[in-house]
Amino acid sequence: MVVEGEWEPEPPKKVPEFPIGEIAPIIGKIGRGIVVIFVILIVFSILFGSIFVSVGAGEVGVKFNQFGGVEEDELGEGLHIVPPWVSVTKYSVRSETYTMSGVVNEGEVVGDDQIKALTTEGLTLGLDITVRYRLVPDSVSTVHQTLGTNYAEKIIRPTIRSSIREVVSSKTALQVYGEERELVAGEMLSNIAAALDSDGIIVEEVLVRNVVLPTKVAEAIEAKLQADQEAQRMIFVKQKEQLEAERKIIEANGIANSTIAQAYGEAEALRIINEQLAKNPDLINYKYIQMLQGQDIQTMLVPTDQGIILDASN
């Protein structure tokens, strides 16, 4: 019996029962949904091309949208999912080389691909050139849109040939062939790099691997180089001999100065001794006695005019 006004506790709420047997069907539905999604993706891949794109190390992927053209944002390394209407073209952004050489199968073009260039003297030189370059990752989309995958043949090759000829035209054959070759290569690098910079291509190095001269010119240059080397050797020998002569002069002067100093010292010593003897004639007898001390003397000759210098009683 409940008295009016008294507090009556609320009956406990019933927790809705969730049959354990219904969990398995729910998980099954989720699993079936995931499978359906993958099936749909596979069907799209078969009908429209793969939507999974893997970009390898040192590569960049350029996206081409069928409805909007080339997209500016590139795909970095790794696995990507792209819509079926987007195709991806991969470009290497690692250091690449382009070689033009007179040796068959050494360069990018089969056969003699050596660059022929005229010097200031009007001589024709043959040059084997290797250029090391790479694409700027953020500019690959522009390269793809303006030049395409064959960009090396379209822009790099003609730029190299034009720049090399321009530099050589301001040089002598000896400058290109001789000791200034590295300086000439540096100038070629600057010209090629400036020409390709706006195309999203960085030029890292230009190697002048071989320079072919006309036979007579090559012989004349070799003779001149040998003559220069011999002249440099003779200058070195002359300088060495001159230094040796100077060393001997210095050494002789040192010996002479030492001898003079010694002579002055001995003369000064004699002068002092003579002064002391003049003041005290018996000093010589004293020095003589000092000299005899410690010596085993059996016979001694004494000048008669000197008197007795030893006291026989002692």
Rank of each mutant, 00 (worst) to 15 (best):
L147R: 07
G122T: 07
Q145D: 13
T130Q: 14
I129T: 15
I129F: 13
D138A: 10
D128N: 14
T130P: 08
D138L: 03
L118N: 15
V140Q: 04
R134F: 00
T149W: 01
T146D: 13
S141T: 08
I129H: 13
R132N: 13
S141C: 08
L123I: 13
T130F: 05
E108F: 09
R134K: 09
V109E: 15
T149I: 10
L127P: 09
T120C: 12
G126Q: 05
I129G: 12
T119Y: 01
V131M: 07
V110P: 11
T142Y: 13
V140R: 01
L135N: 00
G111E: 00
K116C: 11
I115Q: 15
V109K: 12
D113E: 10
T119G: 00
G122H: 06
L118M: 15
S139D: 08
Y133E: 02
Y133N: 03
T149E: 14
H144R: 02
G107C: 08
T130I: 14
L147E: 12
T120H: 07
T119H: 08
Q114C: 12
E106H: 09
L118K: 15
H144N: 11
T124Q: 09
K116M: 14
V110G: 07
T124S: 14
G148H: 08
L123H: 10
K116I: 15
I129R: 14
D113C: 05
L127V: 09
L123G: 09
G148N: 11
D112S: 06
Q114S: 10
T146P: 05
S141F: 11
S139V: 06
Q114A: 12
Y133L: 10
L125C: 10
Y133Q: 03
L118E: 13
Y133I: 04
V136Q: 03
D128I: 06
S141Y: 12
Y133T: 02
V136A: 03
R132C: 02
E106C: 02
L123F: 09
T124V: 15
S139N: 11
E108K: 10
K116G: 13
S141A: 14
V131T: 09
T120E: 13
Y133R: 00
Q145E: 15
D138W: 00
I115W: 13
D128C: 03
L123P: 05
V131R: 01
T146K: 15
D128Y: 05
L125T: 06
L135K: 01
P137I: 01
R134C: 04
D128P: 09
A117I: 02
V136S: 03
V110C: 04
T142G: 07
S139Q: 12
L123C: 09
G107T: 06
L135R: 04
G111I: 00
T142I: 09
T120A: 15
R134P: 00
V131A: 05
D138T: 10
G148E: 09
L135P: 03
Q145F: 12
L123T: 12
L125P: 07
E106M: 10
P137S: 05
V143F: 01
T119K: 02
V131S: 01
V131Q: 04
L125A: 10
Y133F: 11
I129C: 14
L118H: 05
G126W: 02
L118Q: 10
V110S: 06
